[in-house]
Structure formats: structure tokens, C-alpha cells
Amino acid sequence: MSNVTRLRHVLPMSPDINKAIADLDSAIARAVDAAKTAGLPQGLVVSLLHGHAHAQTHQMVTV
């Protein structure tokens, strides 16, 4: 896991990183809102988000 960056060690974060975080957060919120509007069950939305989080965590610790 030597390629993992702990955010507390790089604070304060650059404006580019802050913008990327804000953009990611708003994109996720818009996608969740769109899924709910389309009638997807909340459990399915949560399970998809959890699956992506799990896959990204696995990639982070194995690469």
C-alpha cells in the first residue's frame, strides 16, 4: 500500500484537488438523484455505490 496517499499528510490540498473532489461529489449526487427519479430502488443505488467503492479500494491496495 505504498502508493496510497493519506490526505491529512498533504493538507492543505491544492485548488485543483479541491475542485476535483467537489466535481466528483456533485457528479455522484446528480447520478443518485437521477437514479432515484428513474425509480431505481434505494437499495440498488446503495449496492452499486458500495460495489464501486469496494472495487476501487481493491485496486488501490493491490496495484
Rank of each mutant, 00 (worst) to 15 (best):
Ser2His: 08
Asn3Leu: 09
Val4Tyr: 14
Val4Ile: 15
Val4Ala: 05
Thr5Ile: 10
Thr5Lys: 08
Arg6Leu: 08
Leu7Gly: 02
Leu7His: 10
Leu7Glu: 04
Arg8Trp: 09
Arg8Cys: 01
Arg8Gln: 03
Arg8Ser: 11
Arg8Gly: 01
His9Arg: 11
His9Ala: 12
Leu11Cys: 00
Pro12Val: 02
Met13Asp: 00
Ser14Arg: 05
Pro15Trp: 00
Pro15Thr: 11
Asp16Ala: 15
Ile17Ser: 07
Ile17Gln: 06
Lys19His: 13
Lys19Arg: 14
Ala20Trp: 00
Ile21Trp: 12
Asp23Lys: 12
Leu24Gln: 14
Asp25Ala: 09
Asp25Thr: 12
Asp25Leu: 02
Ser26Ile: 04
Ser26Arg: 06
Ile28Phe: 02
Ala29Gln: 04
Ala29Asn: 01
Ala31Met: 14
Ala31Tyr: 01
Ala31Leu: 12
Val32Lys: 09
Val32Tyr: 05
Asp33Val: 04
Asp33Lys: 08
Ala34His: 06
Ala34Lys: 10
Ala35Arg: 07
Lys36Ser: 14
Thr37Ala: 09
Thr37Met: 07
Ala38Leu: 06
Ala38Glu: 05
Gly39Tyr: 02
Gly39Met: 06
Leu40His: 05
Pro41Trp: 00
Pro41Ser: 14
Gln42Pro: 03
Gln42Thr: 08
Gly43Phe: 07
Leu44Glu: 14
Val46Trp: 06
Val46Gln: 10
Val46Tyr: 13
Ser47Gln: 11
Ser47Tyr: 04
Leu49Arg: 03
His50Pro: 05
His50Gly: 07
His50Arg: 11
Gly51Ser: 08
Gly51Ile: 07
His52Gly: 03
His52Pro: 00
His54Val: 11
His54Tyr: 15
His54Thr: 13
His54Phe: 15
Gln56Met: 11
Thr57Arg: 12
His58Cys: 13
Gln59Gly: 15
Gln59Glu: 14
Met60Ser: 05
Met60Lys: 04
Met60Arg: 06
Val61Phe: 11
Thr62Arg: 06
Val63Trp: 10
Val63Ala: 13
Val63Ile: 00
